[in-house]
């Protein structure tokens, strides 16, 4: 087998080897990829379940304003590695 080096694999390796958080822009600079392209590549690994995206505004059900709640600031998106030994995601208590 001859491993084919791909930029996509480098992106995943960067996540696997990361020891501290960084910004998308820093990672793009480090890998010498345009940030927009890196975003698309990260989306590829998110779809494949190797990375996880978090940070979109969570819905609050208390006062009925839901996603339009003015207190939920537009939280930035972030991405992290999905590890093999992870706990199951927490159950959603809204819909049982």
């Amino acid at each position: 087998m001859t491993a084919v080096p791909t930029t996509l694999r480098q992106v995943l390796q960067a996540f696997e080897e990361a020891r501290a958080p960084c910004t998308l822009s820093q990672l793009a600079h480090e890998l010498d990829i345009p940030p927009g392209m890196l975003e698309g590549m990260i989306d590829h690994w998110v779809r494949k379940g190797r990375l996880r995206e978090t940070g979109s505004s969570p819905a609050c059900t208390t006062c009925g304003q839901g996603a339009s709640c003015p207190f939920i600031a537009k939280m930035p998106r972030s991405f992290e590695l999905v590890t093999d030994d992870e706990d199951a995601p927490p159950p959603c208590r809204c819909c049982g």
Binding site: G55, A59, C60, F71, I72, M75, D87, P89
Partner: peptide, 22 residues
């Protein structure tokens, strides 16, 4: 980030913790 939301109101801050996977 949920802590920052808590500067406004604690209730949505508690829901904002849903962004944490663990």
């Amino acid at each position: 980030l949920p802590l920052i939301v808590g500067f406004g109101c604690t209730v949505p801050a508690i829901y904002a913790t849903r962004t944490l996977e663990d």
